[in-house]
Structure formats: C-alpha cells, structure tokens
Computed example of a mutant assay.
Amino acid sequence: MKAKSVDKFFNSILYIVSIFIILLLISLISYIIFNGRNFLRFEFLFGNPKIGEAGGGIGPQLFNSFYMLIISLLITVPLGVGAGIYLAQYAKNKRLLYIIRLCLETMSSLPSIVVGLFGLLVFVKATGWGFTLLSGSLAVAIINLPGLTRVSENAIISSASLVEEASLGLGATRWQTIKKVVLPSAMPQILTGVILASGRIFGEAAALLYTAGMSAPILNIHSNVTSKSFPLNLMRPAETLSVYIWQLNSEGMVPDAAQIANGAAAVLIIMVLVFNIFSRIIGNKIYKKYTGSK
C-alpha cells in the first residue's frame, strides 16, 4: 500500500509538471500572437521594409528565412543522416567512435556566437564571399550537424535492433537493409531531429549576424541572377526574420519598431508551429508507406 501511495504521489507530480509546461507554452504563444495580431496582413507579410518611416513589411526577411531553411537543410540532412548511418552501422573502431562522439558533443556545446565568429573568419573573410546567404547557411549547418548526427545514430541503432537481423536473414545486403528497412523505421525519430534543426534555423540570430548580415535588398525576380536583388542568389546578404526582430528592438530604426517586431515575432511563431505540424504529418505518411501500416 505504501509503494502504491508513493507511486500515485509521484505520478501526480509528473502530471502537474506536464500540465504546467503545456499551459506555459500555450500562454507564451498566445501572448506573442495576441501582441502581433494587428500586423498579420497581406501588406505586412509580403511588403518591403520602410527605413525611417512607419509601416512597412517583412517580405524579404520572410523569404530569406525560408530560403535559408531549405539551403541549410540541404547541407545538414545528408551529412547528419550519413554520419549517423556510418556511426551506427559501419564504424567498429571503439577509439575512433569515442573521438568522433567527443567532437560532436564539443561542437554541440559551442555557443552560437562562437560559431558566428568562426563563420565570419572562414566563410566571410577567408573565402572573400562577404555577408551572404550561403555563409549563413553553412554557419547554421555547423550548429545543427552534431545534434542531427546523434539523433540519427540513436534512431538507427534502436530501429536496427528490431529489424536488421530479419532483413539480413532473408538475403538482403547491408545497404539494402539500411535503405529499405532501417531508415524507414527510424524516420519518425530522424524527422524529430530535422524539426529541431529547422526550429534552430528559424530562431537563430547570433550566428547569422556575422555571416548572413543585417541587410535585406529589395528582391526582384526579374533582375540579373548575379544581382543582390535576385531572390535565389546565394551570394547576396540575407537578413532573416529573427535578425530583423533583434535589429528592430535594438536600433529602433522606424517609429513603430516595437509593433513591427511584435508582428514579426507572431509570424515567426506561426511559421514554426505550421512547419512542425506539416513535418509530423509528412513523417507519419512516409513511415506508414514504408512499413505498410495503416
């Protein structure tokens, strides 16, 4: 009876803590969206900033955030998942594994401002690129790579323990087993790592200040592909939404800087929520397709 009472007591504490965290998250999201509700308009979402004037929009910054998300994930996901596959399936030298994992843990503990300074020295200065979208994407990839690698490794190890021997026993090669059996089974956990990496990209500001810059040229799809105003040019400055929010709150370059910052923060929160929801839906569909579950 005493053990049951203790069990119920600690279960109740865990439920209370969980409910408190959920309420805190809902309150925070509601507060941010409520404060920025007046700016959730078409002109604000797709308009250009007006330096020194009231009003203006966040169109270039919004586009830069999504574009940097795509470019950074194109760099991070193949490297992170590939490294996870190597560590989980192919690396057998324990000393080498220890060194690689130590390096990953060290990289994951680096402050983003340090990665930003490294990006400034290497991607901005040493390469001669200057402040570019590509420099920012590479800096964010360095931040996200350790976490995605460890998530992928753990997901593959846990999934492989259930299905790998059965697949190999049926005559499949190691690569066929990894590609057709292990990776689909590990996809939900890997997708969680990708979602966490994406959230870091949306919210990152410190590293991007020193690599992508704090200017957002007015974008024009009809301009030359090498022009700084061409949207898909990787070698142009690219101020993201999080950097723009920081700039508004720190410099106050427009009369209604606080209101625009509140609206941009609301848009950023909604972007993260929508991306998380759609990523979960897509991940579940991929998992069901490969596993044959309904």
Rank of each mutant, 00 (worst) to 15 (best):
L134P: 00
G136P: 03
S137Q: 06
L138P: 01
V140Y: 01
A141F: 07
A141P: 00
A141L: 03
I142P: 00
I143P: 03
N144F: 00
L145E: 09
G147M: 15
G147S: 14
L148H: 08
L148G: 09
T149H: 09
R150K: 15
R150L: 15
V151L: 09
V151D: 07
N154E: 15
A155H: 06
I156H: 05
S158T: 13
S159R: 02
S159D: 08
S161M: 10
S161Q: 14
S161K: 15
V163P: 01
V163G: 04
E164F: 04
E165M: 09
A166I: 13
S167G: 12
L168Y: 03
G169C: 10
G169Q: 09
G169E: 10
L170V: 13
G171Q: 09
G171T: 11
T173W: 06
W175T: 13
Q176I: 07
Q176M: 12
Q176T: 13
V181S: 10
V181E: 13
V182H: 05
P184T: 10
S185L: 11
P188Q: 13
Q189H: 11
L191E: 00
G193K: 05
G193T: 07
I195F: 02
I195Y: 01
I195T: 15
L196C: 09
L196D: 08
L196T: 13
A197G: 15
G199S: 09
G199D: 06
G203R: 07
G203C: 08
E204G: 03
A206P: 02
A206R: 02
A207G: 02
L209P: 00
Y210Q: 05
T211D: 02
A212R: 02
G213Q: 05
M214H: 01
M214V: 14
I218L: 11
L219K: 03
L219S: 03
N220R: 11
H222R: 12
H222S: 15
H222Y: 13
S223K: 02
N224L: 11
N224A: 14
V225W: 11
V225K: 08
T226D: 11
S227M: 03
K228R: 11
K228W: 14
S229K: 06
P231S: 11
L234P: 08
M235C: 03
R236D: 07
R236C: 08
P237F: 11
P237Q: 12
E239D: 06
T240D: 09
T240H: 04
V243D: 04
V243Q: 04
Y244S: 12
I245F: 00
I245P: 01
I245Y: 00
Q247V: 03
L248Q: 12
L248C: 04
L248R: 08
S250Q: 13
S250W: 01
S250Y: 06
S250K: 10
E251A: 13
E251Y: 14
E251F: 14
E251M: 14
M253T: 12
M253C: 00
M253H: 12
D256E: 08
D256M: 05
A257N: 12
Q259V: 14
N262S: 14
G263V: 07
A264Y: 02
A265S: 15
A265V: 05
A266H: 02
V267F: 04
L268K: 03
I269W: 03
I270Y: 04
M271K: 00
